[in-house]
Design a protein around this nucleic acid. Structure first.
Lengths: 249, 249
DNA sequence: GCCGATTTGTCCGTATGTATC
DNA sequence: CGATACATACGGACAAATCGG
């Protein structure tokens, strides 16, 4: 259940929009009328609306109202929004997800690993290689590095189910944010083997490199996700800011 | 100059962080002290901070403070964040950008175009093919469709400089948001020719498909941007939300 | 073109809750 | 336990944009 009023309102409106309660281009009820509906203050409905704006569901127009611009993206086989574990996103997309652990080991970060991941040299790490299947098709090959001190007690069994579930529910870690960089890279023999690719067909793939931080401000995860190119799709909603100018202070 | 107080504060803090005024992991001054510094209300500094959170510059920790987690991404040759014209992003990255117009024509959306772009069948459109150079290297091949009624008077000369500048400053359009989907696709002969690629080397590329909306709520642009894989990098900061549950209402 | 009603945008002050130390 | 810090929520004031009469 939602922890806060604004979140409850946000989810309610979001669901209504997804279910088509508002026509495309239609204006949502005004802030004033939402205040009546939900019995809350103006700030609270405004906060809910601003989240819908970030999601690309609505746009606000001063003097007019809040317009529904939601567009269902049917074609996207597998999308990402926010931080999600593979288990969560396969559930959200009503697909059957499965994870196979190819490798599980502990290691100490040497110079090379430290440079690549950003973990300090000498850090104790878990290193995993995992293959994610969606509807029995191997789609993603993950190379995970977890800081051992933050993910203490991780096992292959956990890694087969959901590492995030373990971190959040068992270790009570709060996962905060993730800096991601997406690139296109050549496929390797490992990719070819496990993702059942043919280098004569596609010879590159989508790679998402992410550094994830917890509530203690420590980067506890470095992951490289290698995605089958033909099943990869990444969605995003961008909001225009005015081109930057210098500040006052 | 910033139109609002919170934006001025946001930019000031952002600049200080980028310039290294705060050590990594260091806590920023507390909200209370920022109120003194900027002479404003608590809501106003909170709003500025929340934008920094979206940018992935800081993380807020209840009971502790606001922590600097900014990490300069030196390796990214060309990054995207928010909606930017090619001209703007090359300026931001201090690179020399140039645009070559390969094709410029008007056309009427037929069934096929309508299906692919989302413009209604029969819409009058401008179709452009443009090649973007960064430091004299061709990096991006764009296929742009603009709604003629929204971009009236567009010429190849304008398209060579900056279409967004024309739309915003001359036609006084407000560009609001852009729904983007990123995929990996096979390269075509056109890509090979203009982006100076070799299919024996890389045979795919990064493709960003975007639908952009203006202040009137109409989708005025459909663009497919085809990026050289070896120079492509897309940055993103994701924030963890709790896995979704059903709402109350 | 002006005026007033409506709607969103910015900003303020305050109160209370919750987490950290 | 108290002090500090961020999170949520409320209510109010004024500005700015839109729209209809």
């Amino acid at each position: 259940m939602p922890k806060s009023k604004y979140e409850a309102i946000y989810r309610d409106l979001k669901q209504k929009i997804e279910e088509g309660d508002f026509a495309s281009q239609e204006l949502l009820p005004s802030e004033h009328s939402l205040i009546q509906t939900y019995g809350c203050s103006r700030n609270t409905v405004r906060r809910a609306i601003s989240e819908l704006v970030s999601d690309g569901y609505v746009q606000t127009l001063q003097g007019k109202g809040v317009r529904n611009i939601f567009r269902p993206v049917a074609q996207a086989a597998f999308t990402i929004g926010g931080i999600e574990s593979f288990k969560e996103s396969s559930q959200r997309n009503h697909k059957k997800g499965r994870t196979r652990v190819l490798q599980f080991m502990e290691l100490i970060a040497d110079e090379k690993i430290s440079l690549r991941t950003g973990f300090e040299k000498g850090s104790e790490l878990y290193y995993l290689q995992r293959l994610h299947y969606l509807d029995e098709k191997p789609l993603i090959l993950n190379h995970n590095y977890f800081l051992k001190s933050a993910a203490e007690g991780l096992t292959p069994e956990i890694a087969e189910d959901s590492i995030y579930e373990y971190l959040e529910n068992i270790l009570h870690m709060t996962i905060v944010n993730s800096q991601r960089i997406m690139t296109v890279e050549k496929i390797t023999q490992i990719d070819e083997k496990y993702l059942e690719l043919d280098a004569n067909d596609y010879n590159c793939m989508a790679v998402i490199t992410s550094r994830t931080y917890n509530g203690d401000g420590v980067m506890f995860e470095f992951t490289q996700s290698r995605h089958r190119p033909d099943y990869f799709s990444f969605q995003d909603n961008a909001i225009r800011k005015s081109p930057l100018v210098r500040s006052d202070f």
